[in-house]
Design a binder for these strands. Structure first.
Lengths: 228, 228
DNA sequence: GTCAGTTCATGCGCATTCTCGTGGTCGAAG
DNA sequence: CTTCGACCACGAGAATGCGCATGAACTGAC
């Protein structure tokens, strides 16, 4: 999962970024409205944290531009407590959530989790796929109740796949959401990680769709070949 | 749009209910946790406003029970300003949003609107043609509920045909949409794929219109008169 | 240095796709 | 009605290149 943080206060930005990274997210940073707009417009993020008061370009304007361009990723805006009207303006501009400053970082984290989860269409903080359970709250995964030991990239891969269960996820998509901005994409890293993950959770869960990508799905509903 | 308000403070409940009704929603009221849980479990709501501090059953518990039972309607929780940990717990229990007391009623209204709007975006994208269902989001197709195993080109073909149901689609058109570059046109690959697809989904669905191309259509619908 | 995690390179196996050839079907003209 | 030519279906083999396993090289943390 890849997140963009747009916040001009350097300390606050770093604080948010660090916490998110610790929680296993890939994070890009922007320190003014223009940079933020540019990144959010060009890169595929799973969520954005956007300050309202920004140099160069106002947060609301940034958000409106994104929505006008058809961007639908969840956006959490940060507002000052006394600027009540900002919240309404932000929500009307297409924000999915807001937090008022000052805030507890844990709260932002929880809301980001909820937004990402919601965007994928899951109600609770646990996603289940056959024997595999993903605890988005604790960044843990279990197979048949046994805790899985995953490296950070393996976890990110599993997490992204489980958030998009039943859908085919392309390699490019995976690379873009597992790594930040610049990454050499002509290599077979993704295949390697898929292979390793399969070894840990079982081969049946991640189906490879030749030419398109991978799809995670509970087995049992085996796709039957209708070649009668 | 039908909304449930679970709030034990009678005045606050009525205030919310009135505002929502004025805005054109249908509103049900509950004044304690058990009643709220019962209603939310049995009736289909488009959104729920849920207070955390409730007699009989805690709001968080109510929410967890709903989510555990598979209810996915958007829930907005109300918390006291100083109980920030409640917010985190609520969000992790599956709340979609929260508002801290005291609040402006317009704000609650704006957020309910946002929640309903967002929930509407999760409608699955499916095209149906007779026994065939195409899940464009998951790159999957089923015939009579049985999952089809399609190669990527077969899927692209089916997808294009189903997006233009009832229309005659020329070979050239298909080639142009199934391949990126210009493609050696004097080959019969399209025929081959149509043949393979027919084998998998049944012959009746793809009709060949001699000299023009193919047309996909649910069988049983009168299509003979078009050839006079 | 050691170790865990990650990236890169290679070669093989095989699903997928393309080509080709034959035979069948349709429609119009004689 | 018959005949002819164009169009189409389909099977089978050939060629392509994708996906995977494997192991070695690389990196950073301690």
């Amino acid at each position: 999962m890849r997140i963009l943080v747009v916040e001009d206060d350097v300390n606050l930005n770093r604080q948010l970024t660090d916490t998110l990274k610790e929680a296993g997210y890939v994070v890009d940073q922007a320190f003014d409205g223009e940079e933020g707009h540019y990144l959010g417009d060009g890169e595929p993020y799973d969520a954005v944290i956007l300050d309202i008061g920004l140099p160069e370009m106002d947060g609301i304007t940034v958000l409106e531009k994104w929505r006008g361009a058809g961007k639908v990723m969840p956006v959490l805006i940060l507002t000052a407590r006394d600027r009540w009207s900002d919240k309404v303006a932000g929500i009307d501009a297409g924000a999915d959530d807001y937090v008022t400053k000052p805030f507890h970082v844990e709260e932002v984290l929880a809301r980001i989790r909820a937004l990402i989860r919601r965007a994928a269409g899951h109600a609770s903080s646990e996603i289940v796929c056959g024997p595999v359970r993903l605890d988005t709250k604790g960044s843990k995964a279990t197979v048949n109740g046994v805790a899985l030991k995953l490296t950070s990239h393996e976890f990110r891969l599993l997490s992204y796949l489980m958030h998009h269960m039943g859908q085919v996820v392309s390699r490019t998509e995976l690379v873009e959401h597992m790594y930040d901005q610049d990454f050499d994409r002509d290599s077979n890293t993704i295949e390697v990680f898929v292979g390793r993950l399969r070894k840990k959770i079982g081969n049946d869960l991640i189906e490879t769709v030749r030419g398109l990508g991978y799809r995670m799905q509970a087995p049992g509903m085996v796709s039957k070949d209708a070649k009668s």
